[in-house]
Design a protein around this nucleic acid. Structure first.
Lengths: 300, 300
DNA sequence: ACAGATTGTCCAGAAAAATTGGACGATGAT
DNA sequence: ATCATCGTCCAATTTTTCTGGACAATCTGT
């Protein structure tokens, strides 16, 4: 003890002593020595400045102060145990509010359905999904989980890798029939490129051939936007070529609304990460990360 | 910590941290180092198995578990402080029930009036005076105070000496005029002695002359009783001589109902003690002892 | 973008506290 | 009276806590 206060841990010994009725019995019940019981009680009495227990070697009785303090101690310890149990429950049973943030494209497309089935599995959980392209500070804004796409920058936050995504060079069939399909990355420079300004370098792309040969091309843009969904809308409308993640274009490719360009070349895969603060996230976070993993692993 | 429980003292640091808003500020407020705050919190989180505070070097925020636990901690500490204050009040302010035991003669004659004026000075105190000649175990029977007359035997109880009393050899005037007044202790053997069987040796008395010469006499008894008041009744009735304490005979001597015998010889003084259990008695006990001292010092 | 200041954490040594086990005096049962 | 049992005390040991500085991460002001 640094402060001149009362050491609350001694209440455990005090109540055990009162209930056991003797120092020896209390020691046995606590699995310790009668020395300790005696000294703990003596220290408590000194700290309180009051005698709690009158004792001879043969008999013991509470003073009236002791009587009162025993009742208070019992109540206090019960409440402490209840508070500890309450807080410990969050460790095992997912509950409470789960605040998630995700980017404007990925949130509605992927996180929303995953959250819907998560809510179905854990009905007592409340969910708040904030869709924003701004990279929020999870601590300042109380986010339990932040879903991030691409490549993480270093930070004190922890991250779990959920899945990878492919980057697909796509165009509308109408565009290709009008402008012709490129057959090599270097052909791209002649095409209309739709740029996503949110990227670090929206106009530099490095393609890898099946043999592993890398080609870096610089594109010139006619259409630029900060929104991935808008890129998609432009591409669908035949305004040009661009790169879009698989989770956005899978359906368009299946239905033929979009066509993959240069299918024999690949772009580097990106990661999908769940970023969370703290070293041991609460059960609700762990459960949702696990749920997301399975959701992403299952082909829709 | 021996038991695998939570160290409740850490709650003080935790609540200070939450209120201060940062580790550095909390350390300052507690008059300690940020190291300690950090380690105490880390230990608390480990013990609880839950993260309470999310922190970067620049910002901190409570988790929902932390939010809840903080509310609980505040309430808990408030209640603990209240309980400590309540119990500490007994140290300074006399209150509650004062249980006193005293012997059958001294209780009514001296303690009762003293308690009456004590009650007047501290009206909120409740009083229970048990008059009995049995030497009670104050712990087993919850006596705060036991007034004992004479000479104490060794015990684990504490004792405060309140006053001394003289032992007076007395007789009724009628007895003396019938049997003659003794002029020296050795004359006593020829007289009728009224014995108090409660004494250790009711028939051996050692007198001291004014010059300091001691004379021990053995008496033979015709009347014996275990009650001092009965001794007094016998003496008043002229049944013989006996020794009685000053507090019983003072009035009789003043009114002439009894007469002091061998006034130039003295018997050893006895003590009047307040015996109480515990090393630091509560305020009510200390206050009454002080009150009794003054009461006894003031000639009635 | 870059230095400077500030934050929380970590670490090892130092300090403080708790614990242990046995001796002791007091107490009650036989 | 003798014996067993009780709570306390004491010193040595063990455990825990605290301290102070180094460190990386982060924000601020330029």
């Amino acid at each position: 003890m640094h402060e001149s206060e009362v050491d609350l841990n001694r209440l455990v010994v005090f109540t055990a002593l009162v209930e056991a009725g003797s120092f020896t019995a209390a020691a046995q019940r606590l699995g310790t020595t009668k020395s300790r019981v005696s000294q703990q009680l003596a220290a408590l009495e000194t700290e309180l400045g009051v005698t709690l227990v009158l004792r001879t070697t043969r008999r013991m009785a509470l003073t009236s102060a002791g009587e009162q303090f025993h009742a208070d101690s019992m109540r206090l310890l019960d409440e402490a145990r209840a508070a500890i149990a309450r807080v410990g429950a969050a460790r095992h049973r997912p509950s409470g509010l789960l605040r998630v943030t995700a980017a404007g494209d990925y949130g509605p497309a992927v996180i929303a359905p995953a959250l819907a089935s998560f809510k179905h599995a854990y009905p007592q959980i409340e969910i708040d999904l904030v869709v924003t392209d701004r990279i929020a500070d999870p601590i300042a804004e109380h986010f339990d989980l932040s879903i991030r796409i691409g490549w993480l920058r270093n930070s004190s936050l922890r991250a779990a890798r959920l899945a990878a995504f492919r980057q697909c060079l796509v165009a509308a069939p109408a565009y290709l029939s009008e402008r012709g399909a490129p057959t090599h990355p270097r052909d791209l420079a002649a095409h209309d490129w739709i740029a996503l300004s949110a990227l670090r370098s929206p106009l530099r792309w490095t393609f890898a051939s099946q043999r592993g040969t890398r080609t870096t091309v610089r594109l010139h843009t006619t259409l630029q936007t900060n929104s991935t969904l808008t890129v998609q809308a432009f591409v669908r409308a035949g305004a040009g070529l661009s790169v879009l993640p698989d989770y956005l274009v899978d359906e368009d490719l299946r239905t033929g609304r979009l066509v993959q360009v240069l299918p024999r070349h690949r772009l580097p895969d990106g990661g999908i990460f769940a970023v969370y603060p703290g070293r041991e996230p609460p059960a609700k976070v762990r459960a949702f990360i696990e749920h997301l993993r399975q959701h992403l692993a299952t082909p829709s």
